[in-house]
Design a protein around this nucleic acid. Structure first.
Length: 798
RNA sequence: GCGGAGGUGGCGGAAUGGCAGACGCGCUGGUCUCAGAAGCCAGUGUCGCAAGACAUGAGGGUUCAACUCCCUCCCUCCGCACCA
């Protein structure tokens, strides 16, 4: 017979709810711990990824609780977004109705897992008392010119019928539906995240408890590169083409320059030249290629001559101006100087089109000749053919040439960034309305703060055709201008949902606060988030935006810290048969059905035991059964308690307590569980008393909370186990009187010996050398060394 | 190409200079039972009857001692990328 998990889990879930067991309140006399897991999109059902994410968080949270911290562990819903609209169209319902139904269902499933959330702090981003503050933040940004509107080529997903931020384009496709993204010219709202790029980059160094790879990805994404803008004058006019380079040391080897086909000067350069027709054809061809195709054609470098020339400002040489597909308009200045001898791409292009080459960097101890090169030399060396800079090391020359060019006004030290401003307009209904009014007289007018929230009309028509439903709601669109009271039109785009999630961790500090997005006093106590847990897929998007918002609040004087998340854990994915679980693959394991068969505690135990939190986890039904078996094994201990446990078991208990305490703190739950299993095995060998069993139950409780509450009660305790305190361990009890040492001869184990723990080395040596098992190995050979590693092993070198 | 994480039994994984494979799954045997299930006990890296030999992606090195440190290389996954 197994323990009655169904009854026990329901019982304790009810008790926790009734007693507000996980309610959290600011208390300056206690040390706080803010534990947060990335809140879910309310699809209606939780999946194994959620279970894993939230179980890791729950164990950490309950462990901190037992250690006496004032823990805040909130949960909410990232409730705006497209799936609600799609569901509304499909099921002929409203996004609002559908979302709230899903939230209810998901709450139920989360509660069934026994997670220790403070539900009184719950927020849903689709409620107007949440999104009102999105609008408030937007207006604050607008006042500071951090929110602005501009016309530009934007990423457009034809399937989702909306624009996308750069961060939302993955491999040239929409992050949601993978449809190839098109470029479209539109006027859209942006947030000036680029104004924070320097701080976003520099402060990465503060994030010492973030995974390296997340830091690396953000660093990559922000993409700072330092170099020099060099001004090339056109030969036949006074126009200037700036080119950007990080290798200014190679400027004397620049034998031609290349523009991106989209470069604004190109049309002028080719006008009336014999090459005009050919060039236009080429530009047209490149324009038709998608970004993906253009990036993938990495062998052949195609291009045409414009017929025009420019002047290299360092030596007044005439250099031809080419157009090529390998130069990108969106990076640097959209134009490069080409140094075929010292850049592989330029080398290939120059070979292809017979362009001149000149060596300007000579590697130490060799004599490179341009005509002998089979590839570009991109390493360090000594400057040659570089005028007054000859003989310098190229690294030294880099600084000197840059300074010299600035002085002569022919170049400027420049930094280029990959990060672009954040496009937040979405042509969708189910999101936060952008609080802007367009007045024919006054232009762009922000909605006054007193008029917030701009509520989403609940009765928008959902047909799935003809653009955003918001545009069809007359009473929403047609408004009076707040300034001149004239007839005006309301913005019908909504905000990207990543806006909503960029500050929810602050809202949790004071979820019902009415005067601002959050109560600065509450935030002062609770923030920063001590531990944040979520999927690696948010390494850039959500985590970058949240960092940006936090810095903005810092500038508003609302928070005093630059970074929101102290420590970050990115949990690995849950796989089935080596693949990500997905509907299309039909390999989904539903957590809810697993809890029905084995209970939430067994599911929690298995998911933590099967792999360390950061690595991928292969789902294994038999592993889950094993976890259930272990719980039953622990359950049966209560039937055979004796009056006093053996010294052996006491030692095992203290060892386990030490190990579990350490491992929980470091999120090594798999080895913590292994240690608890070892203790259980030891108890099966020689029995436990009530004290030993009680401590086992407490140390297991963060992982299997319902199960342990029940045993705790059976053991005669009146209060919840989570009111108990975390057991310590006695270092004196960790060591046994006798220890077994391995005896190695030349590094190979040949015998074992049991000796008193503090035997002196000379006694030990005497004892060991007498050991008859070693005789065959030692016979007649002189002893060179006798190494003792205390309480572990002995190595005899002969 | 740049950056990050990895490569250990049949499987998930443990060990961060000190007895490789903890713990679990699976498998084998025993016990209990009329029988089965569950439970409990024992065994289980490979080769070998054994003594023993060989084993942590490959090869080299440092060390009394290397999964762990150093060098050379291979492979897998992830992010960025004709980034000038």
């Amino acid at each position: 017979m197994h323990y009655n998990f169904k009854k026990i889990e329901e019982k304790w879930q009810k008790k926790w709810q009734a007693s507000h067991a996980f309610r959290s309140q600011a208390d300056p006399t206690r040390k706080k711990y803010y534990l947060l897991e990335m809140f879910p999109y309310p699809s209606g059902k939780i999946h194994m990824g959620h279970v894993r994410n939230y179980t890791i968080g729950d164990v950490a949270s309950r462990f901190k609780m037992l250690q006496g911290y004032n823990v805040m562990h909130p949960m909410g819903f990232d409730a705006f977004g497209q799936p609600a609209e799609n569901a509304a169209i499909k099921n002929k319902t409203k996004p609002d109705t559908w979302t709230h139904k899903c939230i209810k269902e998901m709450e139920t499933e989360l509660k069934r897992m026994g997670f220790s959330y403070d539900w009184e702090r719950e927020v849903s981003t689709c409620d107007s008392d949440y999104y009102k503050w999105n609008q408030w933040i937007f207006l604050k940004m607008f006042e500071r010119s951090l929110a602005y509107k501009k016309a530009s080529a934007v990423n457009w997903c034809a399937s989702c019928q909306t624009t996308l931020a750069n961060e939302e384009v993955v491999d040239g496709g929409c992050w949601r539906c993978h449809t190839q993204v098109e470029q479209k010219d539109l006027e859209q709202w942006y947030l000036k995240i680029t104004e924070y790029r320097e701080r976003l980059l520099d402060d990465l160094s503060r994030l010492k408890e973030w995974p390296q790879r997340v830091l690396a990805m953000q660093n990559n994404w922000i993409g700072k590169s330092s170099g020099v803008d060099i001004y090339f004058h056109l030969k036949d006019s006074d126009k200037v083409i700036p080119v950007f380079t990080t290798r200014v040391d190679t400027i004397f080897g620049a034998t031609y320059i290349v523009l991106a086909p989209e470069h604004p000067l190109v049309k002028e350069l080719i006008k009336g030249k014999p090459q005009e027709k050919q060039a236009l054809e080429f530009i047209d061809k490149v324009a038709k290629e998608s970004k993906v195709v253009r990036a993938s054609s990495d062998i052949k470098k195609e291009g045409v001559f414009t017929g025009s020339f420019a002047i290299n400002p360092v030596n007044n040489e005439e250099v031809p101006i080419w157009i090529a597909d390998y130069v990108l308009m969106e990076y640097g200045t959209g134009a490069i100087m080409a140094v075929p001898t010292h850049d592989q791409r330029d080398f290939l292009f120059a070979k292809e089109h017979g362009l001149p080459m000149r060596v300007v960097i000579q590697p130490k101890g060799s004599g490179l000749k341009a005509e002998d090169l089979t590839q570009a030399y991109e390493g360090d060396g000594i400057q040659v053919n570089s005028g007054e800079f000859d003989g310098l090391s190229n690294q030294e020359a880099k600084t000197k040439i840059a300074g010299w060019m600035e002085q002569k006004g022919i170049g400027k030290i420049q930094t280029h960034w990959r990060l672009r401003d954040w496009l937040i307009s979405r042509q969708r209904y189910w999101g936060t309305p952008i609080p802007i009014i367009y007045c024919p007289k006054c232009g762009i007018v922000p909605v006054p703060y007193k008029d917030l929230p701009v509520e989403l009309p609940k009765d928008a028509p959902f047909t799935g055709e003809g653009g955003s439903p918001l545009g069809k709601v007359k009473k929403f669109v047609e408004v009076k201008c707040p300034k001149c009271k004239g007839a005006s039109r309301r913005e019908t785009d909504t905000m990207a949902t990543f806006f909503d999630s960029s500050w929810y961790f602050l809202r949790f500090c004071s979820p019902k606060f009415n005067d601002a997005p959050f109560d600065t006093q509450e935030a002062k106590y609770w923030m920063t988030v001590d531990q944040y847990i979520g999927g690696i897929e948010h390494a850039i998007l959500h985590l970058l935006y949240s960092r940006f918002f936090t810095k903005f609040f810092q500038d508003l004087g609302m928070v005093a810290f630059p970074e929101p998340f102290q420590r970050l854990l990115t949990q690995g994915m849950v796989l089935k048969d080596g693949e990500v679980m997905s509907k299309s693959k039909g390999n989904i394991v539903d957590p809810d059905s697993m809890t029905k068969d084995y209970g939430a505690d067994a599911l929690r135990l298995f998911i933590l035991f099967a792999a360390p939190p950061e690595t991928e986890l292969e789902w294994d039904n038999r592993g889950l059964e094993g976890a259930f078996k272990f719980l039953n094994r622990v359950w049966r201990i209560q039937d055979n308690l004796k009056d006093k446990a053996d010294a052996q078991v006491i030692t095992a208990l203290h060892k386990t307590t030490k190990k579990v305490t350490q491992d929980y703190g470091e999120f090594k739950f798999n080895t913590a569980i292994a240690s608890l299993m070892e203790l259980t095995n030891a108890i099966y060998q020689s029995g436990a008393d009530k004290e030993v069993f009680s401590r086992l139950v407490i140390t297991l409780s963060p992982i299997a909370p319902h199960f342990c509450e029940e045993l705790w009660e059976i053991l005669g305790n009146k209060e919840s186990i989570f009111k108990a305190s975390w057991p310590g361990y006695d270092p004196k009890l960790l060591v046994e009187e006798n220890v077994e040492l391995a005896i190695q001869v030349n590094g190979k184990v040949r015998a074992k010996i049991e000796v008193p723990r503090d035997i002196p080395d000379d006694k030990l040596k005497e004892l060991v050398l007498k050991d008859e098992k070693l005789a065959p190995w030692l016979e007649g050979k002189p002893l060179k060394k006798f190494i003792v590693v205390p309480q572990k092993l002995i190595n005899i070198v002969i």
